[in-house]
Each structure stands twice: as C-alpha cells, then as structure tokens.
Amino acid sequence: MLEVERLEVRYGAATALWDVSIRIAAGELVCVVGPNGAGKTTLIDAIAGLNRISAGRLAMDGRDLNHLPGHLFCDQGIAIVPEGRRLFVAMSVLENLELGSFRPAARVARQASLERVLEIFPALKTRLAAPAGTLSGGQQQMVAIARALMAKPRLLLLDEPSLGLAPSIVLEMFRVIREINESGVAVLLVEQNVAMALEIAGRAYVLEEGRIISEGSPADLMNQPHIRRAYLGESG
C-alpha cells in the first residue's frame, strides 16, 4: 500500500534522512525503532505530508505523492498522531474530533466515526465539551488517536504514542493500537519503547542516524546482538 523508496529529507544544509526505503502492506502493523534524533519523526512527518521530501519517492497504492500538496495527503487515507500529540488545545475535545473528519469523504461518516471512537475511548464521553488542553496526558493521547481515526484512515501513523504516559496507560494504548490494526487499518508505529513495540508489530525497521540499518520480523531483530544491546537493555 505505502511505498517509500530511497527517501531523503534535508533541513537547509542538514540531511535528516538518507536513502530510507520502507513498505507497508494493507492491514500490516509495522514499527520503526531507533534512538532519539535518528529521524523517526522526520520520516513519519514526511509520510503525512508535513515535511517536503528532497529526493526519493513516496507512493500510496502506486500513486505518486511527491508533488501532492500537504493538505491532500489525508485524502489518500493517511492520518497522523503526531509526536507530542499537538491537539488544538483551545478547542473542545469534540471540535478536535470533528476537525479530524474535515475532508468531505470523512465528514459524511462523522456521526458513525464519532460513535466508534467513543466506544474505543469511553473515557472521552464525559469530556467532549472540555477544552482539549485541560485533559490529562493520557486523555490527550486518546484524543490525538481518536482525531486521526475520525479521518477514516487506511494507514495510521503513530509517533511515540507512549511518550510521557504512566505505565498502565501505556499498556492500554498498545492494546488499543492492536485493536485498531485488527479492524483492518494499517499502522506505522514509531516508538522508543522498543520492547513493547516489537511485541505488537508484525514487522520492524531499525532507523539509526537517518538510515535504515536493519529490517525483519520482531523475532529476527530481537536475536541480533546489536539490537539487544542498544534497545533492549541487555549488557555485554
């Protein structure tokens, strides 16, 4: 479904991503792990149309996205849960969700989508009128995921959904992500919480210093000594 070929993203003189190629098939749950500053957010932002790409190719179902204006990426079925959530904090929770279904294709299904996300996150039911900025971190993360689901994506991009959350809420988030994936939505997950990400992923890439250095099933990756040392806290 999604094809990223030899992608390169530069910020001014600095190159954030070099020669990155990844593929995601429909319904897959793919995870990209890597240390801070490896370019994970740059990669996910580029796929969501937030960053312009400098070289390489980005395609969805064979359709080239390189020259597509940023606001049309969501019409291709791509929705993002950005790093740090980036809710519209002055707007109410309901308004954030409604904005998720801004495009005409999602707007016609707004009511059904709303019922569905409230089923996934019942805790939001009583907070719909509250300004999004007044919610707790965990609830804000729920709103960010719910907002993306309102766009009725075929590919959901999740950037560090567990960042800054309490362990019990992190578990809940991963359970929800798996559930969303099982409902047929492909997921690209970027995580520093490598152990948990590998547990739910079907396939994984390792991104270091702007390049993909490894790819495979979670079991393959967990058997590589470098991965065990760098990400799974194994000494020696």
Partner: peptide, 8 residues
Amino acid sequence: QIAAAFGV
C-alpha cells in the same frame, strides 16, 4: 501544519 494534515 497539523490542520493541514487533516485536510485544511
């Protein structure tokens, strides 16, 4: 940026 990601 995020508004644009949702089609604005």
